Simulated assay, not measured.
Amino acid sequence: MKKLIDCEKGEKVKVLKLATNYDLKQRLISFGIMKDTQLQVLEHAPRKKTIEVKVGKMRIALRAEEAELIEVETI
């Protein structure tokens, strides 16, 4: 499975699974990141410590550890 952290800048993906604990899953859902949501990777911080994604019209920065738990597929 491909992880969100492995995606390239500009890539558009669809969320397949959130392999997280309950609290983090609820936080991601509150941002609109859930199964079947489409995301676009906007930026990677140096050394991929964080990743900025676009969800709808909102921009969200996720830690690398969080992005590692989000399984995606390219669309």
Rank of each mutant, 00 (worst) to 15 (best):
K9C: 02
A67R: 03
L28Y: 00
A45K: 08
R27H: 15
E65V: 03
R63E: 13
L16M: 06
D23E: 06
A19I: 06
K49H: 10
G10V: 07
H44D: 07
I70T: 05
K17R: 09
P46R: 09
A45E: 13
I60L: 14
R59L: 08
I75T: 08
Q38N: 07
E73C: 09
L42M: 06
Q38M: 15
E65F: 01
K14R: 02
K49A: 00
G10A: 07
Y22D: 08
H44R: 15
G10P: 15
G56H: 06
Q40F: 13
Y22Q: 02
L16D: 06
A61V: 11
I70R: 00
K12L: 06
K49S: 04
K57L: 08
L42S: 03
E11W: 03
C7K: 07
I29G: 00
E66G: 04
T50A: 11
E71V: 14
K14N: 07
I51F: 09
R27Q: 08
D36R: 01
G56W: 08
S30L: 10
A67V: 01
V41K: 02
D6R: 13
E65N: 04
T37S: 09
Q38Y: 14
R27D: 14
V55P: 02
V13Q: 02
V41T: 07
L24C: 13
T37H: 05
A64N: 06
L18V: 03
A64V: 09
T50Q: 12
K35L: 07
K25Q: 15
K48T: 13
A19D: 07
I60T: 01
L16V: 12
V15G: 03
V41S: 15
R47D: 11
K57A: 04
K14W: 14
C7Q: 04
H44G: 09
K2Y: 09
K2I: 10
Q26M: 06
R59F: 06
G10N: 04
E43M: 01
E68C: 14
E66L: 04
I51Y: 11
I29L: 11
A64F: 03
V55H: 12
V53F: 09
L28A: 00
K49D: 12
R63P: 04
K12D: 11
I5T: 12
M34T: 11
V13C: 01
E71I: 12
K49N: 15
L16I: 15
D36V: 10
E73W: 11
A45G: 05
D6W: 04
M34K: 15
I51G: 14
L62E: 15
I33A: 00
E8T: 06
Q38W: 03
E8D: 07
V53M: 00
Y22T: 08
K25W: 00
K9Y: 09
L18F: 00
I33D: 00
R59D: 00
I60F: 12
I51S: 12
R63G: 14
D23W: 03
I51A: 05
Y22L: 05
M1P: 14
F31I: 12
S30R: 00
K48Y: 09
R47V: 15
S30F: 00
A61M: 12
S30Q: 08
A64G: 11
T37Y: 03
G56D: 10
K9P: 14
L24D: 09
Q26W: 13
M34Y: 13
K54N: 07
H44Y: 11
F31T: 15
Q38L: 02
Q40H: 13
T50D: 01
L18H: 14
M58A: 05
K3H: 13
K49R: 07
K2H: 08
V72W: 05
R63S: 10
I29E: 12
R63V: 13
